[in-house]
Write a protein that binds this DNA or RNA. Structure first.
Lengths: 156, 156
DNA sequence: CAAAATTTGACCAAAACTGACCTTGACTTT
DNA sequence: AAAGTCAAGGTCAGTTTTGGTCAAATTTTG
């Protein structure tokens, strides 16, 4: 079995054991326990616990530092998850507006949040992006924001 | 738990308990109580009770000296306006993170909103933007979102 | 075999913490 | 007053404790 599998397995078990869906590790400690170089932990986090895969990773250096991995819960924002999955590589501004409006009408996000999302993907905001690649940027930005929303939904 | 957390926690409790939002401490006394070196108190004040984070620290040396920490709450509209004006044509990701964190620390935006803002301007989100133009793009997105927040603040 | 994934280690950055030395202010003594 | 004493707090550079980055080397995959 690969070391990276052992690491991700360990983290997944910790997430499983946590009611909050959160695992907090000390990078050096875990590396020592598993018997790998510390940066290997980063590699695993970057390759298997990405936002796209439904995880959020936060960390802090210095004395008492840590790495916290949080799993996004589906049920809390299945609508969000659904929307995220439905967004392809590109998204035009009309589709974005409609989707965001739907989130608001379904009371999945507040009015303020809906406005924020709209502002981030508005053509006006993206005006410096070549029109040809705007749709791709818009899809990317919106997805990242929605993933964040899923995560904070789970937290509360 | 870190010593610095214990110190900041203690101060925050004092602020919480005070109707005026003021905490007054004797540096040596608190250091002795907590069990740390006195200068550690300064470190905590410098790192977590800065003006940026909405605190004013005053002190006096000599016999009967003291350190007084006061929480100042700027109204949301002005705080947002101030931030918007302070953002120039470009904004690197570190500055963005700090500014957004400050909005949260000052209770001007919720944690969810802070996360949304962060997600929108994260390097990861903007990874398809040529690095050379990222800072400009980031400034633009953030400003647009902040303006939206200001507008919804006015409404409420 | 070529491409992708994994593994490693040297070097970097940030946060926390410490202690020696400095400055200020109130009070006391001349 | 002026000088001396002592009780605060202030500074800052250095150390320690963590995690982050990146590119080269190695292994796995297709």
């Amino acid at each position: 079995m690969r070391i990276s599998d052992i690491i991700s397995e360990t983290i997944r078990e910790m997430l499983e054991a946590s009611a909050a869906g959160t695992a907090e590790i000390r990078r050096n400690e875990l590396a020592l326990l598993i018997g790998c170089v510390p940066s290997q932990i980063n590699y695993v986090l970057e390759s298997r616990f990405t936002p796209e895969q439904g995880y959020v990773v936060e960390s802090r250096r210095g004395g008492g530092g840590y790495i916290r991995i949080t799993r996004v819960q589906m049920d809390k924002g299945s609508a969000l998850m659904h929307l995220i999955n439905s967004i392809g590589a590109e998204l035009d501004s009309t589709a974005a507006r409609v989707n965001i409006a739907n989130l608001f009408y379904q009371r999945i996000v507040s009015e303020e949040t809906a406005r924020l999302l709209s502002a981030a993907v508005a053509n006006n905001t993206l005006r410096e992006i070549p029109p040809a690649s705007r749709a791709a940027f818009r899809a990317n930005i919106l997805k990242n924001m929605l993933i964040t929303l899923m995560n904070s939904a789970e937290r509360s």
